[in-house]
């Protein structure tokens, strides 16, 4: 990065001139506020940032950021971002998507962007419902969910974003919650610092069509027993009194009590976000409410070769080896022959 002093930008410098049009009370506002707050801290000029989205409520996000932005078509944001990043690896690219956009119509692109380890940050706003089309169940909706399109309850087993991301061997996987803004800001900073695909699931409340879907994880009276805030190198402890922990019993996690002294911190599972094997991260991603506290924070953060760098390296290597191609060489290659006058 240039050593030249950058003008000190503030959150409001990242606001575009467009009115925000989400429903009052929508969790998206909190996310937008945190993104605008964190962006100036990154020291990256606005013109080097691109926000890319697909279709859905969350996908209006780029219109509200004073950066470059591309509001594309349903599900395709990771593919659009791939083209942008490969064309210009110097750009900082954020993909904003939702549970329907990213995991239903665009599931394919999401998986492939992740497994290629394209250096982009993917924010998946998970509200477990289709909002923009007014309330159908989404691929993350719980089994039996009653919605406009499932009056007798849905019969599809839901998909779990973190498990999908880890299954595709994402190099950075995290979860945060719209109502825990400090934590969200920290996760955004971590994602921005990560080189490679950073996948973040954000529990986001749709107060119109699925109000309270994640209150178990966000509200004071419940959240201590239902969430497990991860810290690298630390034992997995949760509960309002920090008196519960996660232990590995064979291949399975189990909840144990630290209250009676029979179990010590050293007996617990320790978080290792840097493990080259994604097994622990996957195990964490399968800890789900109500059986387990759900992990919040960074599940995985490892270095992997990056896609756009690999592509650029091959171009550079080819030029170094063969010299920059000329039109003369291009046209005159292969078997040629002369026809004389």
């Amino acid at each position: 990065m240039s050593t030249e002093a950058l003008p000190q930008l503030k959150a409001k410098d990242f606001a575009s001139d467009q009115d925000v049009r989400w429903c009052p009370g929508c969790g998206d506002y909190a996310i937008l506020a945190q993104v605008k707050k964190v962006m100036p801290e990154l020291g990256i000029p606005r013109e080097k940032m691109v926000f890319v989205s697909g279709i859905g409520c969350s996908s209006r996000f780029p219109y509200y950021m004073n950066t470059y932005g591309f509001h594309s078509i349903h599900g395709r944001a990771p593919a659009v971002a791939t083209g942008i990043k490969v064309a210009n690896p110097e750009l900082t690219v954020w993909v904003v998507t939702g549970d329907g956009d990213g995991l239903s119509i665009g599931g394919n692109h999401l998986i492939h962007a992740i497994r290629r380890n394209l250096d982009v940050n993917i924010l998946l706003f998970n509200n477990r419902i289709y909002g923009l089309t007014k309330g159908q169940y989404s691929p993350t909706s719980e089994l039996g969910k009653k919605t406009k399109s499932t009056p007798m309850g849905s019969v599809d087993n839901p998909i779990h974003p973190l498990s999908i991301a880890i299954g595709a061997e994402a190099s950075f996987v995290a979860r945060t919650i719209d109502r825990n803004v400090q934590h969200m800001a920290e996760v955004l900073r971590r994602a921005a610092a990560h080189r490679g695909t950073a996948f973040i699931e954000i529990y986001q409340n749709c107060n119109i069509f699925n109000d309270g879907a994640f209150f178990y994880a966000s509200e004071k009276d419940q959240k201590h027993d239902t969430t497990l805030y991860l810290e690298h190198g630390k034992p997995m402890i949760f509960g309002e009194k920090k008196d519960k922990g996660i232990r590995l019993n064979g291949m399975e996690p189990e909840i144990v009590s630290l209250a009676d002294g029979s179990m010590k911190e050293d007996d617990l599972l320790f978080h290792d976000e840097k493990s080259p094997e994604p097994s622990l991260a996957y195990l964490l991603s399968r800890m789900r409410y109500p059986e387990f506290p759900e992990p919040v924070g960074v599940l995985r953060s490892v270095d992997q070769p990056r896609f756009e760098i690999g592509i650029q390296d091959q171009v550079d290597q080819a030029i170094a080896k063969r010299g920059r191609g000329t039109l003369e060489d291009l046209l005159n290659a292969g078997d040629t022959w002369m026809i004389e006058d």
């Binding site: 890319v52 470059y68 591309f70 078509i73 395709r76 791939t82 083209g83």
Partner: peptide, 13 residues
């Protein structure tokens, strides 16, 4: 679809 949308992204960039 990824082939064409990535191309559009590259064009934008």
């Amino acid at each position: 679809i990824a082939a064409v949308t990535a191309s559009l992204g590259a064009s934008f960039a």
